[in-house]
Design a protein around this nucleic acid. Structure first.
Length: 298
DNA sequence: CCCCTCTCCTGATCGC
DNA sequence: TGCGATCAGGAGAGGG
């Protein structure tokens, strides 16, 4: 479940170790990992071979390596970690979940490991969007709360028009990017807002507060190396982050709210779970767009 | 256009 | 011991 902080930890690790390196070999071990590269695996490996890594980038949960070199146009190797993707540096990992391996000219290997195969690599051209260079497949992704050019008040205006639940909107990467289920729940808990509230019913200051909390909680998580529940999320050296110890909402079902002591609840939402404090974050009277799911949960 | 649901995938875990 | 059901969920396709 890598979200912005976890992806940023990986980007920083890659940036420090692969910038200036040249790719000397590539092997695709699982076709699903390159399914989003339309021209196919042979094209991907051919174009990666001999490319120099000029730098790295990230927006939301997408990260990329900017590639270039003599007689070749700049392009981006776009990487999405999906739910369980890892980018490991070191010797080639011997695991069933190795999907792609690349060798660098300093002898290290870059292994893409992904148990659940939601992630993948693709090559793409760079385009300029709103003054920022982005890989074409990332062009539609909104700026994330840690982007220096993130325009919080502009996002508040967008949210204020949404006839849709606030949590759903926080998870919409075209509205604000980088937030997944964990940091959505954390942000809403900090703001004392139930995720089932319709965005348009919240005041602009409250919407701004939610976005500020999102930025804060993701910065906090980043400073602790991200959130890891198991060995699925790790940095480029295979090490886990430890922000899971600081989570106030996500996974806290049955535990006392760290603010008021009320027992935390868990509820089904969008085929996943939402964790919240029923006292700090009371449900809206009319739950959701269509009032369902009152009977039967808990 | 806007909003929402479904689907992809693997492995851990649980109840019977 | 085995087996089916459930859960974890990011993002895009497609439906209403």
């Amino acid at each position: 479940m890598p979200e912005l902080p976890e992806v940023e930890v990986v980007r920083r690790g890659l940036d420090a170790h692969v910038t200036g390196r040249t790719i000397t070999a590539v092997r695709v071990h699982h076709l699903r990992a390159v399914r989003r590269h339309e021209p196919g695996p042979a094209d991907l490996t051919a174009r990666l071979l001999g490319a120099e890594v000029l730098g790295t980038g990230r927006r939301g949960k997408f990260l990329w390596l900017v590639l270039g070199g003599p007689d070749r146009p700049d392009e981006a190797l776009v990487v999405h970690l999906g739910m369980s993707g890892q980018m490991l540096l070191g010797p080639i990992e011997k695991t069933d979940h190795l999907r792609i391996a690349a060798l660098l000219d300093d002898g290290t290997a870059l292994s893409f490991i992904d148990q659940r195969t939601f992630g993948g690599w693709m090559l793409a051209d760079l385009v300029t969007v709103d003054g920022t260079d982005l890989p074409e497949p990332v062009a539609h992704i909104a700026r994330d709360p840690l982007d220096p050019e993130f325009d919080r008040d502009a996002v508040v205006k967008v949210l204020k028009r949404k006839h849709s639940e606030i949590k759903r909107q926080l998870l919409d990467q075209t509205v604000v990017s980088g937030i997944g289920n964990i940091y959505a729940d954390e942000s809403l808990w900090r703001a004392k807002v139930n995720g089932a509230r319709l965005a348009e019913t919240l005041t602009k200051p409250k919407l701004a507060e939610i976005l500020d909390h999102a930025a804060d909680v993701m910065r906090d998580a980043l400073s602790q190396g991200g959130t890891s529940f198991d060995s699925l999320y790790v940095n480029v050296n295979g090490e886990s982050g430890y922000f899971d110890r600081s989570l106030d909402a996500y996974g806290q079902e049955g535990k006392p709210c760290r603010r008021c002591g009320t027992e935390m609840r868990r509820e089904k939402f969008m085929n996943r779970s939402s964790f919240y404090c029923p006292r700090c974050q009371p449900r809206p009277r009319q739950s959701g767009p269509r009032s369902r799911a009152r009977v039967g949960d808990e």
